[in-house]
Each structure stands twice: as C-alpha cells, then as structure tokens.
C-alpha cells in the first residue's frame, strides 16, 4: 500500500528537482536535487548533484558523475561512473566499476571493486573482493574474507599499455584486520588476521597472524609475528 502512493521522479535535460519520497528516481542529464531522497529504485545517468541523503530500498545504479552531499544507504549499489559521497555509504552489496569516493565509513555485506575507490574512514564488509584496476585507498579495512588481487593482463594490447604506464594500481591502507586475508600489491602499516597470505608487490610494515602466514618472495614484510 505504501508503495502505491509513491510516485516517480524523472529528470531529463537540465533541471532541478525536490527531494522526497518516491518509487523510482531517474536522473538523466544535468540535474540538481534539493533535499533528501527516499526511494525504491535509483538510477542516475549524467551529472547530478544531490544536496542531502539518499536512501534506496532496493537498487541504486550510478552511471556518470554523481555527487551526494549526505549519506547513501542502499540495498544494492552499483557504481559505474564517478560517485562522490559526503557522508557514509552503507548497503548489502556494493559493486564498483568506476570510482567511488566516500568521506566517512563504508559498510556492506559484500564489497566488490573492479575500479577505484577512496574511503576516508573504515571499510567494513563481510566479503571484500578487490581487483586492482585503479589506485585504491582506505583508512582501515575490516571484515571476514578480504581478497585483494591484481588482474593479469589478458590481451597483448593491455599488456603494452601496462608496460608504458607507471604501476600505480596499488591499495594503500593503514590497517587491515580480518579472518582470511589475501593481499597483492598492497601497502599497509599493520595487517592482523587469522590466516594471512601476502602476495607479490606488497609492502607491509607489520603482520600479526594467529594460525597461518604465507609470504611471496616478491613481497616486503618488515616484521611478522604470531599472536
């Protein structure tokens, strides 16, 4: 019943809109929304500014450039373009194919990154799966399964591109804490976990593990100890 009363908000071209409670929100072109948005579906293409919080019950998909001044809460979140969130981000599933910048913390059951991100607070998720296609940065990372990998070059062309560009696709973070941790190309001060595997390209100051520790020969670990 509640859902039937919700209406849709569609913005196309250059327009402004008001916040409020909607069923689905479609933003195309250049738009600006004043106030908080509360909706079931959220689609955003183009360049959009939202001066408030965004709360999405089911699915938020962002293509293009979105700036959200407040917090972003969503069931599922897919970021294809560039998204800038002034507050925190929380959701069930977060997928990043573009770039996500979060000023505060970021929480999800599953966090999957195929692009870049910058989180100025804690990234807290059950499963964290990061493929490093772009530089990634977080203050802290915590979760159950944390897997950070560098994708292998598939085609000769991408191999060529990679050989020219300097290798900047690394994850920079202060502390990583979790149960099963697998890292590649990561720079961290402290890594704490039950099972820790440090792969190639890592520079870690300190590893604390409980059960199992593995280190690749191309990784640099200054200190490791079992606790």
């Amino acid at each position: 019943m509640e859902q039937k009363r919700r209406r849709d908000l569609t913005i196309s071209g250059i327009m402004g809109g008001q916040g409020g409670t909607y069923h689905s929100v479609n933003l195309n072109g250049v738009g600006k929304v004043n106030g908080h948005l509360d909706c079931i579906h959220f689609h955003c293409h183009g360049r959009v500014k939202i001066q408030g919080d965004v709360k999405v019950e089911q699915m938020a998909e962002i293509h293009g450039d979105a700036r959200i001044a407040g917090n972003l809460e969503s069931g599922k979140l897919k970021v294809h373009g560039k998204t800038n969130v002034g507050g925190y981000v929380s959701g069930e599933e977060i997928e990043i194919h573009g770039f996500l910048k979060v000023n505060s913390h970021c929480e999800a059951e599953s966090f999957c990154a195929r692009g870049g991100f910058r989180i100025n607070g804690l990234l807290n998720a059950g499963t964290i799966d990061i493929q490093l296609y772009a530089p990634c940065e977080a203050k802290e990372i915590g979760g159950e399964t944390i897997r950070i990998q560098k994708p292998g070059a598939v085609s000769p062309f991408s191999k060529f591109i990679r050989s020219i560009l300097p290798r900047i696709d690394v994850l920079t973070v202060e502390t990583i804490e979790g149960d099963d941790i697998h890292l590649e190309y990561t720079r961290a001060k402290v890594v704490r976990g039950t099972n820790v595997t440090i792969g190639p390209g890592c520079i870690i100051d300190m590893v604390e593990y409980r059960q199992h520790f593995d280190q690749d020969k191309n990784a640099k670990v200054l200190e490791s100890k079992r606790v």
Binding site: E109, N124, G126, G142, E144, E177, G178, D179, R192, T194
Partner: peptide, 11 residues
C-alpha cells in the same frame, strides 16, 4: 572471537 566477528557485529 575473531576480527571478522567483531566487524560483523559492528556492522
């Protein structure tokens, strides 16, 4: 408890 549990509870 493990780190994972603590973070899950926090979440």
């Amino acid at each position: 408890i493990s780190y994972g549990q603590l973070y899950r509870w926090k979440r």
